[in-house]
C-alpha cells in the first residue's frame, strides 16, 4: 500500500493535462482501484480523480445514437429512461453489480478500463457493438470495444487517455436482448460465466440478426462470431440453439480459478447460451 498523491481536476482539459505526466492514473468510483491498490496490484504515483469533471455522466440519445458518459454510475444507468427503452440489458445488468454502495460509486468507464474478463457490462456492450471514445492531451480517438479489450486488465488505451464515453446504436424496435450470469452466490458475486444476447427475428421466426457475447470464459469478454454466423438466416429451433451453444463453447477459452474450473465454465457457456436463446425464441421473449 504505497502512498500516492491526489489531484482533482475540475474540467476535462485539466484532467487530460493532469494525466499527461508519467506515473499518473485516473480514478473514478474507486471500486476497483482501491481494492487493487491495497492488494499491491495497482501502481500510481498520483491518482487523478475524474469524479468532478463535468459532462462525463450523461446518458443521451441523439442522432440515432446513445452516448453514455464514462462516469455514469450503475445507479444512474439502472434508472436511465433511455437505456430502459433502447438498451434494457444494460439497465438490468447495472442492478446486478455489487450492492447499492457499489452501484452508487462504480462507473461504466471504470468497468471498461478495468478490463476484467468478468466485467459484467462488457458482454452487453459487446452485443450493442459499442464504440469507446478516448480523449487525452494529444487528442481524441475512437475504438470498437472489441478492439479496446486486449487481455485481463489490458486495453488498447494509453495511461494518459481518458475514456470519455461509450456509444452505440439503440436496439431497433422488436429486437430482443438479454443478459444472464452464473455465480457462486446470489448477492455480491463476480460472474463465473456471463452471456449477453441481441436477437432479431423475422415474422417467420427466422434469425435476421444475432449477437452473442460471453464473459469470464476467456482473457477478455468476447463475441462469438461462429455462433452468430450459424444463427443468422436460420429458424431458431432447438437444434439450431444446440448448435449455437456448441459453437459458443468452442469459442470459450476458460481457466481454472478459485471461483470455478474451466470445465464448469464451458458447461456454463452451453447452459447460458441454450437458455438465453430459448428464452429469446419464445413469443415476445426479451422484446423491446
Amino acid at each position: 500500500m504505497t502512498p500516492f498523491d491526489f489531484l482533482s481536476p475540475q474540467t476535462l482539459a485539466e484532467a487530460c493535462h493532469a494525466l499527461a505526466a508519467a506515473g499518473r492514473r485516473p480514478i473514478a468510483g474507486g471500486t476497483d482501484v482501491i481494492p487493487q491498490w491495497r492488494a499491491g496490484r495497482f501502481q500510481a504515483e498520483t491518482l487523478v480523480d475524474l469524479s468532478r469533471v463535468p459532462g462525463l455522466s450523461d446518458v443521451t440519445l441523439r442522432d440515432g445514437e446513445i452516448a453514455i458518459g464514462a462516469l455514469s454510475t450503475y445507479t444512474e444507468l439502472h434508472a436511465s429512461p433511455v437505456l430502459r427503452a433502447h438498451a434494457p440489458l444494460l439497465a438490468e445488468v447495472s442492478a446486478m453489480i455489487g450492492g447499492a454502495q457499489t452501484q452508487n460509486r462504480g462507473t461504466i468507464g471504470g468497468n471498461i478500463a478495468n478490463a476484467s474478463p468478468a466485467g459484467d457490462t462488457l458482454p452487453p456492450l459487446l452485443v450493442l457493438d459499442a464504440q469507446v471514445d478516448l480523449i487525452s492531451a494529444a487528442g481524441e480517438r475512437s475504438l470498437a470495444l472489441s478492439a479496446f479489450l486486449r487481455g485481463p486488465g489490458q486495453t488498447a488505451s494509453e495511461a494518459h487517455e481518458i475514456i470519455r464515453r461509450v456509444r452505440f446504436a439503440p436496439l431497433p424496435r422488436g429486437a430482443r436482448s438479454l443478459f444472464l450470469r452464473l455465480g457462486n452466490r446470489q448477492g455480491m458475486v463476480i460472474s463465473v460465466v456471463s452471456a449477453a444476447f441481441v436477437l432479431q427475428l423475422d415474422d417467420h421466426g427466422r434469425v435476421e440478426e444475432a449477437r452473442v457475447a460471453l464473459g469470464a470464459v476467456a482473457p477478455t469478454a468476447i463475441r462469438c462470431a461462429e455462433a452468430e454466423a450459424l444463427l443468422r438466416g436460420r429458424p431458431l429451433d432447438d437444434d439450431l440453439i444446440a448448435r449455437a451453444a456448441d459453437a459458443a463453447v468452442a469459442a470459450a477459452r476458460p481457466i481454472d480459478d478459485v471461483r470455478a474450473s474451466a470445465a464448469y465454465r464451458r458447461h456454463g457457456v452451453r447452459v447460458l447460451v441454450r437458455r438465453g436463446l430459448t428464452q429469446l425464441s419464445a413469443p415476445g421473449g426479451g422484446e423491446q
Binding site: F6, S8, G30, T31, I34, S51, Q101, T102, N104, R105
Partner: peptide
C-alpha cells in the same frame, strides 16, 4: 457508499 472505497479527496 462504502467509505472504505472513497478517497478523502473525493
Amino acid at each position: 457508499v462504502n467509505a472504505c472505497l472513497v478517497l478523502a479527496g473525493q
